[in-house]
Amino acid sequence: MNINIKDLYFTYPTGLEALKGINLTIESGEQVAIVGQNGAGKTTLARHFNGLLKPTSGSVSIGDWETTKYSTAKLASRVGYVFQNPDEQLFSRDVRTEVSFGPKNLGYSKEKIDELVKRALSLTELNGKTETNPYDLSPAWRKMVALASIIAMDTPIIIFDEPTTGQDALNVGRIARVIAELRHEGKTVITITHDIDFCAENFDRVIALAKGQVLLDGMTKDVLGEEETLAQTYVDPPQLTRLGKALGLKDTVTTQEEFLKAIMWG
């Protein structure tokens, strides 16, 4: 299910012009990271995917649905959205109820709901915490609950808004495994992130936004190698990419193996 964005402009009621002419196609099954400085319009753009925001002009289509013609509740069957702040999204008395809420609302059968909830809880390693009140968990685990509750909806498209914020290395690893599994299942995953090393290690395509427009869009390695252009939107390339550049390596490297190979062979 493709996402098509045509000449998207969005102005907040306050007069703030957050998006100024975005054109993008994201194809079914792509793993896309959206990067850019604070206030670049990343979250504003992502909130158009599930109709939380509607274009001031231009259009956003999810498959054959133009978002202005469908409610957010309806769009939720195609696009799941994990908020930056889990506290904006959690409200149930225990983890299992929370994670079951989405699939129940989508009207799946009881068997299917049980299966989806089970899979979401095990992917996010929440099995031991199903009866806990989400607000008795640490913020990091609340984030995993927020992730699970969206994954359980089994939508073809999933948006993560800053999934690694405030997460330690173990949880970042867990989130990377969740994304890998979603990729394996053929889901489209779109992630907003400032964690550029995480971006380099988990995504095929990177879109850099600056001041409400697309600055760069392409394969991860090509985009993250554009140090000077990225600087316009305050994105530093990954640590190993910067190290490779500083050492004068010929090719752009983004991962440890690439880097070690490059210095071994000169």
Partner: peptide, 13 residues
Amino acid sequence: GFGVSRYTSTARE
């Protein structure tokens, strides 16, 4: 299980 810099982990390897 602490997070470390990519420079540290890569140099360790």
